[in-house]
Amino acid sequence: MTAAPDHAPTMTRASLFHRLGQAAPVLLVPILILAGFLAIGAPSSWLTLTVSGLAMGMMIFVMASGLTLVFGLMDVINFGHGAFISLGAFVGISVLLALSGWTEAPSLVLNLAAILLAIAAAMVLTGAVGWGFERVIVRPVYGAHLKQILVTVGGLIVVEQLIHVIWGPDEIFLNRPETLQGAITFAGAALEKYRILAVALGLAIFLAMRLVLRRTKIGLIVRAGVQNGQMVESLGYRLRLVFIGVFVAGSALAGLGGVMWGLYQGVITAGMGERMMILVFIVVIIGGLGSVEGAFIGALLVGLMQNYIAFLEPKLALVSNIGLMTAILMWRPQGMMPVVKAK
């Protein structure tokens, strides 16, 4: 066997400055929460807004996580992602309306079972539609960004119109399941029960995604594929199949996000996904292309910022997220944790 060079390197602990630099994006969330506390003053209002912001952030993360992987893996800009949010909301809410006996019962178990069934139905259907969307609309335009934008926007419009055809042109109002209505009081702050559920659900999805991406071979292939797809294929993996899987999973997650958002807002419309795409794209961009962790932190920042600013300076609420994106891109032009470098 070959003699190795004399040089015998050792691992040393990274400097504090280096470690702080790496952790900076993660630290932004507690820093923003602390800044919110100092600016708002009243602890109960701050706690209510913080839970609301985290809940909103978690839901945006669920919608954005699939998009950032699709973006990173195959360099596909899918403006049609919003269609899966709307479709998921309509399918999920239809299931909830059909299960009104369960949702109106004062039983947490029945209420949660109804929500889980609604989520399952929404994810299965949006996943299936996502598979067809990739095959019919996205596949012919790989590598052509302008065409991707045009045809995926076209796909979005088609799905929106199909929603009008199936569910009618009007918005649908809904009540949350019986036991998830109202708020609990904690430390003098009113915390909406549904928002707490949304935080728990979003956190569970993030941890599950992280587990899959970090601890499984398929996760390894996805992470490597985001960085250098050609090399992953050169090792023998059929990245196309992985991409289809990610596209379907991302569509299903968007559908799940749609159900959560619909329950959060109490009303659904065919255009809700399209409107959410502004926030979703902001999250994907400030998180860094291809990064699930970046999207998670970005979504929490967006949710918290929107809630704090809406309370402190309502007139600035509309531009708060654009301001956040501008500030982060001036600090890190590729986003906070880019896996794929912007071209």
Binding site: K217, L220, R223, A224, Q227, N228, V232, L235, G236
Partner: peptide, 17 residues
């Protein structure tokens, strides 16, 4: 063609397709 965000171990595990 190194996957720079993956560890050395992860690069090697991936190589064993």
């Amino acid at each position: 063609g190194i996957f720079s965000d993956l560890t050395v171990e992860e690069n090697m595990v991936l190589a064993a397709a």
